[in-house]
Design a protein around this nucleic acid. Structure first.
Lengths: 125, 125, 125, 125
DNA sequence: GTGGTCTAGACCACG
DNA sequence: GTGGTCTAGACCACT
């Protein structure tokens, strides 16, 4: 369900966060669904529980999952897909760097949009 | 000409690289134009020369600038705006994370494209 | 009579203790009134008997309830509402954290008192 | 500057967070002031750097401090004392438990308010 | 069984 | 020097 790319420069806990969100966005995981325990996922991915716990803590902070003491961890009930202006601004900032990089590679606005649409499709959402 | 945000999570040397490329993309800087020496820019930005040197080394590696011993540093003559498939792939990988994040914020494909165009315009290229 | 919020960060057995005390403070329950058996409450709340037993043990230790072998569990006869300096000190310690947090949110002493009175009213005691 | 109570049931990283906020609320620390590095504080308090790092991460999330890579950590510039409705609600929830506990100890509303004012004064803010 | 906390120590990028 | 990440393993409270 979650795959770690050890070669990636992206921290493992961020890879977990991103893939968990992906499964939620795609509909593979829905409100109330149980997700693996910290220990189980750590065993599966052959990483330490602390790293999984860090990812889960962040996902809980973002209201993607919620934990019930002694029971386990679940996809949040009130999970929302509403726009958070602050988060969108963060994305825009990162986007600017990437658009500039594409421009430096000779792509104009329409070609960039084409690339974005193409990339969006590849996500398979 | 270059502005550093010390608090940014983006390394200073990357900020220099990005802004230098931005000036080139925008046309503020053209092939053959002189750019400040490592020492001068370090003084101006109140950072250590090593950081500037690191940025310049990377810019030279990417054929954006070239150093002529005894003369100084200049925007490269053979600077190209041709597509580099490898770099575009890198951008696409980063893009995927951002598109997912936007999707989690409730934006659909067309809204995302709108945001991209908006962001592109803000670059002022 | 007792409602459990599984998602709360407060342990279930503490939720039981607190709500039982609330009913006593409010007068819903009085000395000698019978309260559900461990097993019945566990069934009602769909939790394990051990959790209820833990709550009852603590309530008995605090002289809020008493168990009569073979008869059942009852609100204590000698239940007291007298000040226990040790417990009040405990509360004060927790209070300090909360007052600091309110101060960090810009509330001054009078505004804090106003919030406290408001919160007290909401208890409905 | 920070004192750890090993006997407290409150996690060490929370003690650090709370005391750091206290120093800011009291005015001992102001915007831009440097705070000890993760390693230095860990040495001083004889705890592991990870625990200090966790406290600092949370303080940064709450906009109390900000870190500049390679430079150190500082009290945030834009630190605000504005009311955050969500945080105040959290406090109110905790407050309810404490007010009930005080009520069980025989204190009425005015006595509770007196205790709150007394506790506020002890904070020395 | 569950997650939360902490330790002791390592490696890395950045400046 | 700085903070960020990760490992390996421990202890604890809760269910």
């Amino acid at each position: 369900m979650i795959y770690i790319d050890a070669k990636s420069d992206k921290p493992i806990y961020e890879q977990i966060i991103e893939q968990m969100k992906f499964h939620v966005a795609k509909g593979n995981l829905n409100s109330g669904d149980a997700i693996p325990s910290v220990r189980k996922m750590a065993l599966d991915l052959k990483i330490t529980p602390g790293t999984v716990a860090k990812a889960y803590a962040e996902l809980e902070r973002q209201n993607v999952i919620e934990t019930i003491r002694g029971k386990g961890t679940f996809i949040a009930q009130n999970i929302s897909f509403e726009a958070d202006a602050k988060k969108i601004d963060e994305v825009k900032r990162r986007l600017k760097s990437d658009l500039l990089e594409l421009k430096m590679n000779g792509l104009d606005e329409d070609e960039i949009v084409k690339l974005v649409r193409e990339t969006y499709k590849e996500l398979g959402l």
